[in-house]
């Protein structure tokens, strides 16, 4: 069976969930091989978890330089493996780094690129959701090795036993842009926005940075991630990395709760594929109600705290 290369997303010695989703999809196309690019000693910490999701092999590409250059070490390693093992496909998380890595790999190997797919069938057809969920499309790679980026959270990760046989591979001497400083994002206690099964977002209607505590309290009662509209971000109520929408994150959780968000088309583009949508807005004409499964016309400062209390009561 042909190998399918999966680029491993990892942070602080832990495999990120999207990798397990990619390994799950990879099994439909062939035998998954996980590719770890990192500092010496990285793969050791990740191997067991990768094996638990079906990785037959783990290619360990480790060097000090691997983390000192932007994107190019991953491209170099994957390009080398593509040449050597002729995989059925290369799967990469559709993160910012992942999309850049995949794009460069496609150029270097003369291959087709499928970007941000939400599913792949056994023949390698990738499903896309376009224009923020307004369109579905299926695409196929017709030349070279399919290079595919897969959106986090789009498929359910399923465990499967894999041998996870480790093989060291060389990281070619790096060139390109050098990383000279690093301020890791603060992890915080909440789940990551794109990975969370529940997201509670606040908009301009929240009114101030202090008032965002109302959004956070509701989120915490549900174990949810916090999101924000661009208007809320632009007004300085909440940091940029939490923006949901066309120019922010695309989220597709089980439950999305929008507080004081009007539902502009650009905001909807980032959240309308959520399974269930709840909205609270004092304007009965707000467009968010057109896509809400449950809408409450009312003041978020009355409704949200009451909901938080009710959830705490029911859970307690």
């Amino acid at each position: 069976m042909a190998e399918v290369l999966v680029l491993v997303d990892h942070v602080d010695g832990e495999v990120k969930k999207v990798t397990f989703e990619l390994l799950t999809v990879a099994r439909r196309l062939g035998e998954p091989s996980a590719v770890v690019v990192g500092e010496p000693g990285t793969s050791e910490k990740l191997t067991a978890a990768l094996g638990a999701y079906g990785a037959a092999k783990v290619y360990a590409a480790e060097s000090a330089q691997a983390v000192q250059f932007l994107v190019t070490p991953q491209v170099d390693v994957l390009a080398g493996l593509v040449q050597r093992v002729s995989p059925a496909a290369v799967l990469v998380p559709a993160s910012i780094d992942g999309k850049e890595i995949a794009g460069r790999l496609a150029v270097r190997t003369g291959s087709g690129l499928l970007s941000e797919v939400v599913d792949i069938d056994g023949e390698g057809g990738g499903s896309h959701s376009l224009f923020g969920g307004a369109y579905d499309a299926t695409a196929k790679v017709v030349r070279g090795t399919p290079v595919v980026t897969v959106l986090p959270g789009a498929v359910e990760a399923e465990q499967a036993a894999g041998a996870a046989a480790v093989e060291q591979v060389e990281v070619p001497a790096a060139t390109g842009a050098r990383i000279t400083g690093r301020q890791p994002a603060e992890a915080g206690d909440r789940p990551e926005l794109t990975e969370a099964s529940v997201v509670v977002s606040g908009g301009r209607g929240v009114g101030s940075a202090e008032n965002f505590a109302v959004v956070e309290k509701l989120a915490d009662s549900l174990g949810a991630a916090v999101g924000a509209s661009r208007a809320a971000v632009d007004s300085g109520f909440y940091p940029h990395q939490f923006q949901v929408g066309q120019t922010g994150k695309t989220v597709s959780p089980q439950l999305y709760i929008a507080l004081g968000i009007s539902g502009a088309i650009q905001h909807r583009a980032g959240m309308q594929t959520s399974k269930t949508i709840v909205a609270v807005n004092k304007d009965p004409e707000a467009p968010i109600f057109e896509i809400a499964d449950y809408g409450v016309v009312g003041d978020l400062f009355k409704v949200a705290p009451q909901l938080t209390d009710e959830i705490t009561k029911r859970k307690g």
């Binding site: 993160s95 780094d97 390109g176 050098r178 990383i179 890791p184 794109t194 940029h240």
Partner: peptide
């Protein structure tokens, strides 16, 4: 600036 944080990059 990405989800992973802020990197300084030079070339």
């Amino acid at each position: 600036e990405t989800d992973a944080g802020v990197l300084t990059v030079e070339a």
